[in-house]
């Protein structure tokens, strides 16, 4: 009972924030009903996907302060599990996604155990290294399509079971369900025992140990939680895109983008990943489509991205949410 109450307990959040989030949620709920372009819909779906990626990253990266730049490998494990199970055994999404999640968690434990013997930069670089190793393996593993990747067979009829729809609206609502599920999970997580212990670890590992916290194990557990989020979205990605290749779903670019959501939005806060995705994804989409049409401007969108990251890193490491909280302390909002 207490757990259920805790999941929906938002009592520590200012009323203003809740109102804004309420209005935003309402907008998300009715978005498919208001007239929109298919491009806007695709952008919204990407926004939801990256919010979820970001929420996952935020557990270990934000609350735990462990900068993980190898999350794409788990998106790949999720995506390829779903694809392979569908192609070879005709297994529906709702079974293959949890299986993919379990594979991802097993892998995360296997590499998390040695990974968390490192700290700081060394850890961050090592996460990239592990991700690249797995990418190399997938690129030459014929069972998962090697470098070409896999194409998912189309069902003749739209199917909720296999997560194949003709209209993006269905994908949208499935994701929206996952989005709220993820949001309330994180809301519970941040004030759970593990959440508290993790924040203590981020501040000072030595003090955390003296309070009876098994620092290494806490990090590994949280890493697995972050991994679950990413793996499920990876599985979804496979069904939504029909086409996956390792260069795309397991690239460093994706890992980085995942980390950026929370970093730019505000690492270690409930709203961070959502704000980050809401700012960065439309920016990327619209900037990309606007500049993509112009000859010789490829890369300019990412230049702007890069400038945003550098400015945030240099002047407000706590991201957009950090700016809001600072302003609030001065009594402006």
């Amino acid at each position: 009972m207490e757990v259920i109450r805790n999941i929906f307990d938002l009592s520590d959040i200012p009323r203003k924030d809740l109102t804004v989030f309420g209005i935003f949620s309402l907008f998300l709920l009715i978005f498919p009903l208001i007239p929109h372009s298919s491009f806007a819909m695709a952008t919204m779906i990407e926004f939801l996907m990256f919010s979820l990626y970001g929420m996952g990253w935020n557990t270990i990266g934000g609350y735990g302060g462990q900068v993980d730049l190898g999350k794409a490998q788990y998106a790949g494990i999720g995506a390829f599990t779903t694809a392979v199970m569908l192609i070879h055994w005709n297994i529906p999404f709702w079974i293959s996604a949890p299986v993919g999640m379990i594979f991802a968690i097993i892998w995360s434990f296997a590499i998390g155990y040695p990974l968390f013997r490192m700290r700081g930069h060394y850890f961050a670089i090592a996460t990239i290294a592990t991700s690249l190793v797995l990418l190399d393996v997938f690129q030459s593993w014929n069972f998962v399509g090697a470098a070409k990747g896999l194409e998912l067979p189309l069902k003749s009829m739209p199917s909720l079971l296999y997560l194949q729809f003709r209209s993006d609206t269905y994908y949208y609502y499935i994701l929206l369900f996952l989005f709220f599920f993820g949001f309330f999970y994180i809301n519970w997580f941040r004030k759970s025992r593990l959440g508290f212990q993790l924040r203590a670890i981020k501040d000072n590992e030595e003090v955390a140990r003296s309070l009876g916290i098994n620092v290494h194990w806490c990090k590994i557990k949280t890493y697995a939680i972050a991994t679950s989020f990413v793996a499920v979205v990876g599985s979804f990605h496979a069904c939504y895109n029909f086409n996956i290749d390792p260069e795309d779903i397991m690239s460093l670019d994706l890992s980085i983008l995942i980390a950026m959501m929370a970093m730019v939005g505000g690492a270690g806060s409930l709203w961070g990943p959502i704000i980050g995705a809401a700012v960065l994804i439309p920016l990327k989409s619209y900037l990309g489509s606007w500049l993509g049409g112009k000859e010789g401007l490829a890369g300019l969108d990412l230049v702007i991205y890069a400038l945003i990251i550098m400015i945030i890193a240099a002047f407000e490491p706590r991201g957009i949410w950090g700016i809001v909280e600072k302003a609030r302390k001065r009594g402006k909002i």
Partner: peptide, 27 residues
Amino acid sequence: YLLRGPMIAQLFGTFGLMLLLRNLALL
């Protein structure tokens, strides 16, 4: 400026630099 912030800022700052140089080259 990065040196004043936490370690995570140094990581992301030089990482932004990497993105910047890479995409400027592309441009």
